[in-house]
Design a protein around this nucleic acid. Sequence first.
DNA 1: ACACGGTAGTAACACGTGTTAGGTAACCGT
DNA 2: ACGGTTACCTAACACGTGTTACTACCGTGT
Lengths: 359, 359
Amino acid sequence: MTAKDAPAARGRPTSRDVAAAAGVSRSAVSFAFNDPTRVSTATRERILAAARELAYTPPPSGRTLRGGRTQSLGVLLPHDIPKVMENPYYARFLMGLGQVCTREGMSLQLIPPIGDSLVKAVRHAAVDGFVVCGLDTDRGEIAELTRRAIPYVLVDSDAPDGAPSVDIDDRDGARHVAQHLLDLGHRRIAVLSVEPRADRPAPTYRDPLVRRMAGIEDALATVGLSRRDITVVEVPCTRMDGYRATQAIMATRPRPTALVVLADLMAFGAIDALHDLGVNVPGEVSLTGFDDLPEAQWTRPRLTTVRQPIVAKGRIAGDFLISAIRGEDQHPHQVLQTALITRESCKPPAEPVSPDSAP
Amino acid sequence: MTAKDAPAARGRPTSRDVAAAAGVSRSAVSFAFNDPTRVSTATRERILAAARELAYTPPPSGRTLRGGRTQSLGVLLPHDIPKVMENPYYARFLMGLGQVCTREGMSLQLIPPIGDSLVKAVRHAAVDGFVVCGLDTDRGEIAELTRRAIPYVLVDSDAPDGAPSVDIDDRDGARHVAQHLLDLGHRRIAVLSVEPRADRPAPTYRDPLVRRMAGIEDALATVGLSRRDITVVEVPCTRMDGYRATQAIMATRPRPTALVVLADLMAFGAIDALHDLGVNVPGEVSLTGFDDLPEAQWTRPRLTTVRQPIVAKGRIAGDFLISAIRGEDQHPHQVLQTALITRESCKPPAEPVSPDSAP
DNA sequence: ACACGGTAGTAACACGTGTTAGGTAACCGT
DNA sequence: ACGGTTACCTAACACGTGTTACTACCGTGT
């Protein structure tokens, strides 16, 4: 045994080791694993046996380097993983994305910002493509992705034409739910929205929230109101922040008769807060959500909310990404429709805003 | 310009291209990106400028191959991603794991079986280590991992001594909740448990479920009962299966007075089923869960359940894995304690089993 | 006997990086 | 002026694979 074919003393066995053990060349080993037609079945068996003996399986590093695919999709997250996983919205979304993964035999890589920098995270990630979640359009990540010609799909962003995207009709959904409350007779309305990212220098709404606010203004306009006539509060999208913000809102006088919450997760916190304050829902305050998470139908009262097809959104995003990776399709856009789900958390205000009500 | 330093016509720019553009060697480019002390700041600036110009960033493939870390942790899942994401348990668990990722600047790769084979999935995954979730011990994956000397941590399995592991005291938790119901006076008890994986030839409980059943038997023994005196039903761990199984259980006569559900997710389905059947909880039937998911305190009635520290479990598993990757620590084991959380879903049976109760 | 075609296996290259050993020129002290 | 140090950069190697071009071989038809 010369020094050349001595097995690497440290570390895992390599294809050269099993080649030596089976008495063949390294190429034969590769063929035995990948292209069975290129070696005789006899030597193939011998090689695989030797590999089994040495506990060798071709590591993904080399295979990937050679230009192959990594068999995994990346999800670019707007926050760190604990914060993301707190929101059941993402569980739903990942279910849809997971359907595609199951079909394609891929795994799913959750990629949070590294020290507030998603660009860094993008650079380190070994994936075949990215699904970009809820990021404002003008941030640097998508520039980085376009520059490097890595396939990606934008979700819930104002997407430029150059990239595939999946969105929902936020404006329409918000318009409907606001109109619903106005139709019931509510006029003193408070809106609980999602805080823009703290690290942005000039505070702007995240894109979907801009659209939802626009939809609310559309509805208000039909009864001659404008945004200045309602209260708008913005907090981070957590249950606890929804709880606290609701406490704050209910401390104001006159109290609003309806609370439009732009994310179910925060609406759950609002329900808790109202419950703890002894405020009857919908008797004293009507409440609406947005998303229609499964939990929305298990709350008491059941939550009236805007359904968006979250799972389908994830699945379509995954399909688009697969297409982009294969180079099949060019920049498809899709806007999914929402639906108002009326349950038990809304009813007409106890004391109508117009003074001509019977005593 | 010779043919040698011509940029690769196809594909992304390489470090050689930016080296040529900046008029330096390829090594200098590498140093400019990784070890700033090795090049003068002037040329470093020039190299980085050239890189920016060419839209070059060092791809992870080469870096990984060189023996470096991939900066991501793998989670080996027992089912495909949609099924896993349906269970809020995993959202909590991933929150804990995510805390470690945030601290270490890593990403998280969700690795489902590929066509029912986790071994295949393990082979294709490029991660620094694996957290193995809820897998029976005797399956082939951990053999594969040990053989290839890849760091891993077992969670919710009967772990051999050779590997780090994190578990909870399932037996103790189940004993407490069963004892609680027995103390209230319940004797006709039904247990709703989790079905073993369908792909196993000889049906066996998954390890934590075996322990939980043992705990229930412990409690039963204190009042002279055994497992044969109670009804045990096993279904897959989904909300819908919990719903259906509860319907089936309530169709039997005599009805049980208490329902011990060994997973909160299924208990939520049970609450829905009982609600739809018009069965009052806890008036007619007492109900308990296991896990204490956050949703357990938002149900009506609030669910009495066994709290297990899911987030902590994920965090500790992550910590152990990081230690294993660094080679710092050898095979730590940890068993986390549970706590009985009594809420509103249990009370003494309406008609005591003993006939000597005062009318 | 010999050209020919098909098969089994191999040498060599490409992938793109990180890193070690080495080399050159400038600089410095005597 | 000159040996020795330092700053800077480069050539060369290693990582482990997939794949292409090629050779050795063997049977076969003429």
